[in-house]
């Protein structure tokens, strides 16, 4: 068992230095773009093959469109967004948005674990289920299931039939937990320096334009956001001059303002201009520096 663990750790070290396959897991169409799009695009630029698992169908978030029409449009738009980041393929799990509380966590875990074994990623991006005050709870359920899937995919006694059809256990060595920057404690280090994902920031200046293109592709959600802001302001006797006319140009400007500010928040207290924040578990998560030094 110890040998297996060390072998996994060494494999982790190799993968951390040279990522080949990236698996991105998102609850909905926009979260992975806004929180991790720049870092994903950077990895693709460096040669990684990226795949996206989209857990829900986003049917709820639109402006004056039916759930069916919303789901149809957003499915096309998230494919465009993924292409803008260089993601090769989107795997749509198709759960109804806002309803993950009633989905079996084990079912969701095993569906994600299937793709982990199929694609054998070196790096996994997942919604951080420990990030607080994130209002879309689908992100919590997705993050929890993805964490469990990463473990389940590595153990032979989970879903033995997978192995019988050639899907051997696979251990993902690097994890990026992402979340919108609403948790006031998100930058605080975890309680130990090892074995727990720690806050990191990644420079996305070179990839920002691709991230912006990806975000702009999400037209249905972006229009909904603009209309809801305008509605809220109107109901309270206010207006935002940018949204006096909600057309493509105004929505695009709003999206760019949003993304630039998010990237600036990510870069706060770093040397970067535009960045993304994560809780990252890499090689140190598996084996402390001290022991790695001794083995070299």
């Amino acid at each position: 068992m110890r040998t297996l663990f060390l072998a996994l750790c060494l494999a982790a070290g190799a993968a951390a230095a040279d990522p080949k396959v990236v698996l991105v897991i998102t609850a909905d169409a926009s979260d992975f773009v806004h929180c991790a799009g720049g870092t994903i695009a950077t990895m693709v630029e460096r040669g990684a093959a990226a795949h996206l698992i989209r857990v829900t169908n986003d049917e709820k978030d639109s402006w004056r469109l039916s759930p069916e029409e919303t789901a149809r449009r957003v499915r096309e738009e998230v494919e465009q967004a993924a292409r803008a980041l260089g993601i090769e393929k989107v795997h749509h799990l198709g759960y109804r948005a806002g309803e993950l509380a009633s989905v079996s966590p084990t079912e969701l875990r095993d569906r994600i674990a299937f793709y982990v074994r199929l694609l054998k990623p070196d790096v996994m991006f997942l919604p951080n289920p420990y990030a607080e005050y994130v209002e879309v709870l689908d992100r919590y359920y997705t993050g929890s299931a993805a964490e469990e899937a990463r473990r389940a995919a590595s153990l032979a006694n989970y879903q033995p039939p997978f192995a019988q059809v050639g899907l051997e256990p696979h251990f993902v060595p690097e994890l990026y937990h992402y979340a919108a920057p609403v948790d006031p404690r998100r930058r605080e280090p975890e309680s130990t320096a090892t074995f727990v994902p720690q806050p990191v920031t990644r420079d996305i200046a070179a990839a920002f334009d691709r991230k912006l293109r990806a975000a702009l592709a999400l037209r249905t959600i972006n229009y909904s956001l603009a209309m809801r802001i305008r509605q809220r302001l109107e109901e309270t006797g206010r207006r935002l001059p940018l949204l006096d006319t909600v057309d493509d140009a105004a929505v695009a400007k709003l999206v760019e303002i949003n993304l630039r500010r998010l990237a600036a928040i990510g870069a706060e207290k770093t040397a970067f201009q535009l960045a993304e924040e994560f809780h990252y578990a890499g090689l140190d998560y598996q084996i402390p520096q001290k022991y790695r030094g001794a083995s070299q």
Partner: peptide, 24 residues
């Protein structure tokens, strides 16, 4: 209390909205 303001769910936009919103 932990207070959540009207645009706290939009961390990338809340400052912009605060600065640029005007009365009708």
């Amino acid at each position: 209390y932990y207070f959540v303001d009207e645009f706290d769910h939009l961390p990338g936009l809340k400052e912009y909205l605060r600065q640029h919103t005007v009365k009708k």
